[in-house]
Simulated scan of single mutants.
Amino acid sequence: MDGGASETAADAKSAPDTEKRRAWDDEARDSLHILPLSAIPLETPGLQHARLIKNVRLQTVVEMFRDAQTGSGQVSPRHIPAYFESYKDEIERDLVKLEKIGAASSFDVYSSRIELRRLNIDVNNVESLTLSDRKKAELTSYMRVFTRPLMEYVYGTEELQVADVTDIIQLFANPNRDEALRNLRMMADRLDIGLGEIPQFLEEYGDVFLSLAYFRKCLDEIVPEVQRFVGWMGEIRSSAEVKRDPRQIRMLDDIARDLTDISTSITGRFESFDNRSKDFWSDINADTFRSIRELISSHHVTIGGVLCGLAVKMNLWKHRFARGGGGPNRRMEFVKSEILPGLSHIKALEQSARTGHL
């Protein structure tokens, strides 16, 4: 009787722990600035539970733990060996990987896949390098932009209810109308693939445009925050403390201009992707799909880097000044110490994409 009671108590305790772990893992998978080290084959026991994160200065640090009470335990990668003295050889080899991966500008799942492939690390079927089910559900409305033309092309309607590309694959695996089957055959011919390869094409189509939907949602959340921050920062230009120093005025103007230019430029890139995806549906063939897939994939790293940089800075600003406000000196100090460092890196990343040097 007692054994059964203690088992029940243990189960009750493990349920919140499992839930907490799942939330911890999902946060990392859906984030622009966190990479769970469980995604990487490492030799050092204990390191698998840590995470690489980007701090507000866009430096890569290892987050050993995070807790509501104790905060975040962050360590520079070069100081990690001191925590694993019993595994000197293993940590040395792992450190080489961490330093190479840590040089990435973003830790979103799409950029991380690219960076890990460059290190010859197999990223196929690694759950922590895919978006969580919760995030995919959030992106349903964004994905409709890309699933709608597919439904119209095959079924002649957009009224069929689909939540994501998985639903479409199942729908197209057993088309329920003769006309739909004819259209699928025509699509297969145009793409130069067999009818049986259509589900594989749809999976690839889904992954390419899921990445675009993910980044688009990040952009839609970040840009309004950037605009609010620029307004908040501009409020201190008229204060007596700031007006006395033309250099401070110039710095505020430069930061405001850079943030506005970056936001405008990256928004323009997404408009270009939207236009290219429309072109694909007006002229479906293997070359147009390959072209748009390569175009979007080639921008993953720069889009991820720009959005990651803006996100960590805006998140800290919202946390530090949750109710707005803050006197001129406090605001100026925050701008100088937290916003300015790393901003030139974000600007350079966006400029490199704009000029085509990816």
Rank of each mutant, 00 (worst) to 15 (best):
I222E: 07
L37F: 07
R185Y: 06
A28T: 03
G3T: 11
D11N: 13
R78E: 15
M233W: 03
W317E: 15
R118E: 15
G73A: 05
F201E: 06
D25T: 10
V62R: 01
L95D: 06
A28P: 02
S238F: 04
D167Y: 08
R244K: 12
G194A: 10
V230C: 10
K313R: 15
P149A: 08
L210W: 00
V96I: 15
R51H: 04
D89A: 14
H79N: 13
Y214C: 02
G73H: 05
R237Q: 12
D189C: 03
D167I: 12
T267N: 10
A28F: 01
V162T: 15
R117L: 11
F280E: 03
G4P: 02
R354M: 11
G356H: 06
R78D: 15
Y205F: 13
A322R: 15
A311F: 06
F215E: 09
T44H: 02
V162L: 14
F209H: 12
A103L: 08
V145C: 00
R113H: 06
N285M: 08
R57A: 05
I222K: 00
K13W: 04
T166L: 10
L202K: 04
D94Q: 06
R257F: 13
I303T: 15
E197L: 00
F334H: 08
E225S: 13
P199T: 01
K88F: 00
K88T: 12
T130Y: 07
L131W: 02
Y205V: 03
I101L: 14
P41C: 01
R247A: 11
T302I: 09
L316F: 07
M143F: 09
L340F: 07
K347F: 12
L343F: 05
E221Q: 13
G304L: 07
N315T: 11
G268S: 13
T44F: 01
M314V: 12
K97H: 13
Q161C: 01
V165K: 00
Y142N: 08
I236L: 10
I80T: 08
R93K: 15
R290S: 14
S76I: 09
R57K: 12
I121L: 11
H49Y: 06
R293M: 05
A188Y: 01
I91F: 05
D25Y: 01
G305I: 06
V165Y: 09
P149E: 04
A173H: 09
I53Q: 01
R228N: 14
R182N: 11
V242E: 00
A180Q: 10
G342S: 04
F280W: 03
C308F: 06
A348D: 12
E92Q: 13
S352K: 13
S106I: 07
R93A: 13
A311E: 15
S291M: 09
T147Y: 10
V126A: 05
R66I: 00
A28Q: 02
I101N: 02
D133H: 07
V145W: 01
K97I: 15
